[in-house]
Design a protein around this nucleic acid. Structure first.
Length: 939
DNA sequence: AACTTCACG
DNA sequence: GACGTACGTGAAGTTC
C-alpha cells in the first residue's frame, strides 16, 4: 500500500528507548553465556506489546524503528563541543546495540539509521514526508528534542508513562506552541546535549521573551528593547551563540534517505524467525507468549547447565505456562477440598488468597478462599456467597453449592498452621488478619508483594496487578468487572460463584507464578537478608498491632469538634466581613482571587494551574505586610485553617474510625508503600496526629489506655543524625553524641565559634535547620526559604558546615555517584532503594539526587525500627503489655499498671540494640521514654 | 481524578 | 554555570 491519506505512521525512537530500558531495568544476562541482554529484553517486550496493542481503527499502517548511527554528525561540524559532556556508553550496554537492530528485524519491522545523522533527523524527515502525503504520525518517544515536530497530524507518545504528547503538552513544557519550540531551546540551551544557548536564560524566561517578541529573529533584531539590562546585554552579546544553538537544536527535515515511506508498511512478524531470535536470546517468557499468540509450539529451549554448575546469578526464569481460566475449579465439597490440601502437603507450599466483603480487615466477612499449587491449577472455595435480593430482615439466602464455613475452616486450619507448608500470598497481612479472626494463625508465610519490595523498591509499585503486568505480562480480571464501582458497587458476597471463581482462582494463580519468578531472584539481587529479617517476619507483628488497635475516647473528640465548630463559625463571619463579600473560606482559589486581585496583596505567585498559591508561608508573609486589610484577612484565614484541619482530619474523622465491636481505632500499616523502608499508616493515618502546636497536641489526650492500663511511648533520640554521623564518619558529631551533648548547640558552636553554654536559641535554631537540611540533600535555596534569610547567607552557612564537617560532602558525592553507577543506593543494612531518575535530564535529576542522599539515612532508621519491632513480641512476651503503634522513630505500647518500668527496660534494650549484630554503630543509639494515661502524657 | 493544603517524622 | 530545589508519607477539601 502506498503511503497517503488515511495512513498512520508509527516511528519508534530506538536509541532513546534502549537507554531508558537499560537504566530502568535490573541487569539481566543470558543464562548460557552471561551475555548482557537486559536492554534487549526491555526493547523486545516493548515492541511486542506495541504490536499487540489494540488501537481500534487508529492503528499504524506503517511502522519503523529509528536508530542513531555513529557518534559524529553534522552538528559536530557546526560546534565541536556538541554532546561533548556525554558519558561513555556503559560497558554492558555496548554489545546490546547491534542486538537491538537484529531484534527489530526479527519482528519484521523496518530498522533505519543513517551515517552522520541522528535518529531525530530521520524521524523529522519521515514525519514531514508523511504529513505532506496527508497521513498521520505518532512518534513513540518522550525526547523533548522531538517536540518541535508536533502538530499538523504529528503527535508523540511516551510509552513509559503511557501518555500522549500533543501541542498542548508541548506548550505546557516549553511555554510556546510547537513551532516556536526551537526558538526557546536556542535561548535556553541544553546542558545534556551541551548546547550553549543564552547564559542565564532558562526555558521560562525564553518562553516569556519569545511570546513577547513573536519569534527568535525578531527578538534578536529588537534586543535593545528588552527592559532588564542584564538580559538585554546577554542577547546582544551572545546573538551568534544563540543562532548557532538554534541550528543545533533544529532537526533536519531533509536528510537524504535511501528508502521511502512505502517501504515502512506494517507487516506481520514471521513466527519462526521471531521465535528463533527470542529463543536464541533465551527470553523464555516472551518466546512462550509469542508462541501462544501464533498457536505454535515454542522451539526447544537451549541446553542449560544444571543448577550445581551454574553461577548463582544465572538462575533460570521459571517456565511460563499460559493462563487458562477454563481450568480453574470451584471447590464445593469436603472431599475435593481434602484433595487440594493433600497436594499442598505433598508439595510443601500453597498459594492462598481470601475474598471478603470489605477492604477493612477488621470488619470484613470472609466470602471465599482461593488456592493454587501449580501454575494454571487453581481452585476457589466459596463460603459466604449470598443471593442478590435481600429479604425482609436485611439478610439474604446463601447461594447453593457451598461448604459450611466451619467445616471448611476446620479442614484448612491444620494446613494453614502447618510449619512444613509454606503459605504464599500477595499482601499476606490482609489474609493473615482475616484468618486470625477465625482462630487460624497462618504460618509460615511468603509474600510476593514483599519479595518485590525487597528487590525492586523505587522501581515501581508492588500491587498484584502491576506485578502481574510487569513480570507475567498478564492482566488479571479487574475487580471492578465483578463488583462495579462508585455508588453502584456491590460486596463480593453478592457475586455469582462462577464469576468469583474465575477472578479469585486467577489471583492465587498469579501469586504462585510471581512467587516462582521472584524467589530465585532474591539472593542474586542481594535482597534475602532484608526480606528475611525485616519484611517477612514483620507481617504477623504488624497484624497483631493493627488488630489490637488503640483506645480512643470519642467524648473528648466530640467536645473538641463542637468547640472547633463554634470557633470556625465566628472566624468565618469575621473573615467575610473583612473580605467584604461572602465566599468559601475553604477554597484556595476564591481566597487567592480576593487577596491578590481585589485587595492587591503583594508577592503572590501562581502555580502551574494558574491559581494563586495561598499556602501557610504565603499567608504568613501577607499577615506581616503593610496591606492592612489583606494582612488581617490572611491572619484570620490562618487561624481558621488550623482549626478546620484539626476538626475535619482529626476530631471528626477519628470518631468515625472507632470500630463498633472493639471500641478502638485500628489503623493499617503498609509495609511496601514507602520506598525508603518506612511504614505508612492508613485508614486512619495514626502517624500524623498533631503534636507541634499546643492546640493540636490536645488531640492526643483522646488516645488513652484501657482500664487499669497505661500507655508507654519510646522514641529514638535524633536517630537520623546519628546514622548520618556514622555513615559519613563525622568524628565531632559522634563524640558529641557519645558525650550526650545537645547536638544542634554543638553544631552551632562548631560553625559560629560560640560556646555551647548559654547558646543563643536563635543561633541554635539555625544550626538545627542545617542539620536537618543535610539529611534532605541541602541546598542554599531550600535552607534560605526554611530560615527566611537571604540565599547568599544560607549558602554561607552551608559552606561553613561542609568545611567543619568534611565527611558530609564526601558522603553526598559518593552516594550520588553510587546511585548513578548502580541505579540504586543502599542502607548500611543492605536495603536497596532504586533511583531510576538519577541519570535523567531536567529538574527530575535534582529531585533524584536529593532523594538518593536521603534514602540511605531515612532507610537505615527504618531498618533499625523494623528490626526492633520484629524482636519486640518475644522480648516482652512475659510482660502484660503489647505494642500498639509505630510512628517512624517511636513505638507506643499499652501495659498494665505496675509493669511500666519492666516494659520500658525490656523494650528500650531491644530498641537501643536493634542495629546489632548486623551493624556495629560507632556511636550509641539512645531511646527516651514516657508513661501516661494518654498519648499526650506519654509522649 | 488532579490539585492544593497541611498534619507527622 | 544554570537548571529548580529541602526528604518521606496520607487525608480532606475544592475544582474540573
Amino acid at each position: 500500500m502506498a503511503f497517503g491519506k488515511g495512513c498512520h505512521l508509527h516511528l519508534i525512537d530506538g536509541s532513546a528507548y534502549i537507554f531508558r530500558a537499560y537504566h530502568a531495568l535490573p541487569p539481566l544476562t543470558r543464562k548460557s553465556d552471561g551475555l548482557p541482554v537486559g536492554a534487549v529484553a526491555g526493547f523486545c517486550n516493548m515492541l511486542w506489546s506495541e504490536l499487540q496493542k489494540d488501537h481500534g481503527a487508529d492503528g499504524p499502517t506503517h511502522i519503523a524503528v529509528i536508530f542513531d548511527k555513529g557518534s559524529h554528525t553534522f552538528r559536530n561540524d557546526l560546534y565541536d563541543l556538541y554532546k561533548a559532556n556525554r558519558d561513555e556508553m556503559p560497558e554492558d550496554l555496548r554489545p546490546q546495540m547491534p542486538l537491538t537492530r537484529e531484534a527489530t528485524l526479527a519482528f519484521n519491522i523496518a530498522c533505519k539509521e543513517l551515517e552522520g545523522y541522528e535518529a531525530d533527523d530521520i524521524i523529522a524527515t519521515l514525519a514531514r514526508q508523511a504529513r505532506e502525503a496527508g497521513g498521520r504520525v505518532t512518534i513513540i518517544s518522550s525526547d523533548k528534542d522531538l517536540m518541535q515536530l508536533v502538530g499538523g497530524g504529528v503527535e508523540m507518545f511516551d510509552a513509559m508513562k503511557n501518555r500522549r504528547i500533543g501541542p498542548e503538552e508541548v506548550e505546557e513544557k516549553f511555554g510556546v506552541r510547537p513551532e516556536r519550540v526551537i526558538d526557546v531551546q536556542a535561548l535556553a540551551g541544553d546542558s545534556v546535549d551541551n548546547i550553549p544557548g543564552a547564559p542565564g536564560i532558562g526555558v521560562k524566561t525564553a518562553a516569556l521573551l519569545i511570546n513577547e517578541f513573536g519569534d527568535l529573529d525578531t527578538l534578536l533584531a529588537r534586543a535593545e528593547e528588552i527592559k532588564q539590562p542584564k538580559r538585554r546585554q546577554t542577547l546582544i552579546e551572545k546573538a551568534d551563540q544563540i543562532r548557532l544553538s538554534k541550528r543545533l537544536v533544529t532537526l533536519d527535515q531533509d536528510t537524504p534517505l535511501d528508502f521511502t515511506l512505502d517501504d515502512l508498511e506494517l507487516r506481520d512478524p514471521e513466527p519462526e524467525v521471531l521465535m528463533d531470535f527470542l529463543n536464541q536470546m533465551e527470553f523464555r517468557a516472551l518466546t512462550r507468549r509469542v508462541a501462544d499468540h501464533f498457536g505454535a509450539a515454542p522451539p526447544p529451549a537451549p541446553e542449560i547447565a544444571p543448577v550445581s554448575e551454574r553461577a548463582p546469578e544465572d538462575a533460570p526464569a521459571p517456565e511460563q505456562a499460559a493462563f487458562t481460566p477454563g481450568d480453574y475449579v470451584t471447590i464445593r465439597d469436603a472431599d475435593t477440598l481434602e484433595r487440594w490440601l493433600d497436594q499442598a502437603r505433598a508439595r510443601g507450599w500453597l498459594a492462598v488468597d481470601t475474598e471478603t466483603t470489605s477492604l477493612d480487615e477488621m470488619q470484613a466477612d470472609l466470602v471465599g478462599v482461593s488456592l493454587c499449587i501449580e501454575p494454571g491449577q487453581a481452585g476457589y472455595l466459596p463460603l459466604g456467597h449470598t443471593a442478590g435480593g435481600d429479604d425482609l430482615f436485611g439478610g439474604s439466602a446463601p447461594q447453593p453449592g457451598q461448604m459450611p464455613m466451619a467445616q471448611a475452616l476446620a479442614l484448612l486450619k491444620p494446613v494453614l498452621e502447618d510449619p512444613a507448608i509454606l503459605k504464599i500470598g500477595q499482601n499476606m497481612k490482609y489474609d493473615f488478619k482475616i484468618f486470625a479472626r477465625h482462630g487460624i494463625r497462618v504460618a509460615p508465610i511468603d509474600d510476593t508483594m514483599l519479595l518485590s519490595y525487597a528487590m525492586h523498591a523505587g522501581l515501581h509499585g508492588h500491587g498484584m496487578d502491576a506485578l502481574s503486568d510487569r513480570h507475567l505480562n498478564h492482566q488479571p480480571i479487574p475487580i471492578k468487572e465483578l463488583i462495579g464501582s462508585g455508588k453502584a458497587q456491590i460486596t463480593f458476597d453478592k457475586v455469582e460463584i462462577d464469576k468469583a471463581t474465575a477472578y479469585a482462582a486467577e489471583d492465587a494463580d498469579v501469586t504462585l507464578r510471581l512467587w516462582q519468578a521472584f524467589k530465585p531472584q532474591l539472593h542474586r539481587l542481594r535482597a534475602t537478608t532484608i526480606y528475611e529479617t525485616e519484611e517477612r517476619p514483620l507481617v504477623p507483628v504488624l497484624a497483631d498491632m493493627e488488630m489490637a488497635g488503640v483506645r480512643v475516647d470519642t467524648s473528648v473528640l466530640a467536645r473538641m469538634s463542637n468547640a472547633f465548630a463554634q470557633k470556625m463559625a465566628g472566624l468565618e463571619d469575621e473573615i467575610q466581613q473583612v473580605a467584604g463579600q461572602p465566599f468559601n473560606v475553604a477554597s484556595p482559589k476564591q481566597l487567592g482571587e480576593i487577596l491578590f486581585e481585589t485587595m492587591g496583596a503583594e508577592g503572590g505567585k501562581k502555580g502551574k494551574t494558574g491559581a494563586w498559591g495561598t499556602g501557610a508561608d504565603v499567608l504568613e508573609d501577607i499577615a506581616a505586610s503593610e496591606n492592612e486589610q489583606a494582612a488581617r484577612l490572611a491572619g484570620l484565614v490562618l487561624d481558621w485553617r488550623q482549626i478546620a484541619k484539626l476538626k475535619s482530619t482529626y476530631t471528626d474523622a477519628l470518631q468515625t474510625h472507632v470500630n463498633p465491636e472493639t471500641g478502638r481505632v485500628h489503623t493499617s500499616y503498609s509495609i511496601a508503600g514507602a520506598n525508603t523502608g518506612r511504614l505508612a499508616s492508613t485508614d486512619p493515618n495514626l502517624q500524623n496526629i498533631p503534636v507541634r502546636s499546643d492546640e493540636g497536641r490536645r488531640i492526643r489526650e483522646a488516645f488513652v489506655a484501657g482500664p487499669g492500663m497505661r500507655l508507654v511511648s519510646l522514641d529514638y533520640s535524633q536517630i537520623e543524625l546519628r546514622i548520618l554521623a556514622h555513615v559519613a564518619n563525622l568524628p565531632e558529631m559522634k563524640q558529641a553524641f557519645k558525650d550526650g551533648i545537645d547536638i544542634h548547640a554543638m553544631t552551632a558552636a562548631e560553625m559560629f565559634g560560640v560556646p555551647v553554654e548559654g547558646m543563643d536559641p536563635a543561633i541554635r535554631r539555625q544550626a538545627k535547620a542545617i542539620n536537618f537540611g543535610v539529611i534532605y540533600g541541602i541546598s542554599g535555596f531550600g535552607l534560605a526559604r526554611n530560615l527566611r534569610i537571604p540565599r547568599a547567607e544560607a549558602q554561607g552557612f552551608i559552606d561553613r558546615y561542609f568545611e567543619r564537617f568534611p565527611g558530609i560532602r564526601r558522603y553526598m558525592d559518593e552516594t550520588v555517584n553510587f546511585a548513578k553507577e548502580h541505579g540504586y543506593v543502599e542502607t548500611i543494612f543492605g536495603r536497596r532503594i532504586h533511583t531510576p531518575e538519577i541519570n535523567a535530564k531536567g529538574p527530575g535529576a535534582g529531585f533524584a539526587k536529593r532523594a538518593a542522599i536521603n534514602a540511605p539515612i531515612q532507610g537505615a532508621a527504618a531498618d533499625i525500627i523494623r528490626r526492633a519491632m520484629v524482636r519486640m513480641p518475644d522480648a516482652i512476651a512475659d510482660l502484660p503489655a503489647r505494642m500498639l503503634l509505630q510512628v517512624h522513630d517511636e513505638l507506643i505500647f499499652e501495659v498494665e499498671e505496675g509493669a511500666e518500668e519492666a516494659l520500658i527496660g525490656a523494650a528500650r534494650a531491644v530498641m537501643e540494640g536493634a542495629a546489632e549484630p548486623a551493624v556495629k554503630l560507632s556511636l550509641p543509639l539512645v531511646v527516651d521514654g514516657g508513661v501516661g494515661h494518654s498519648w499526650a502524657e506519654a509522649h
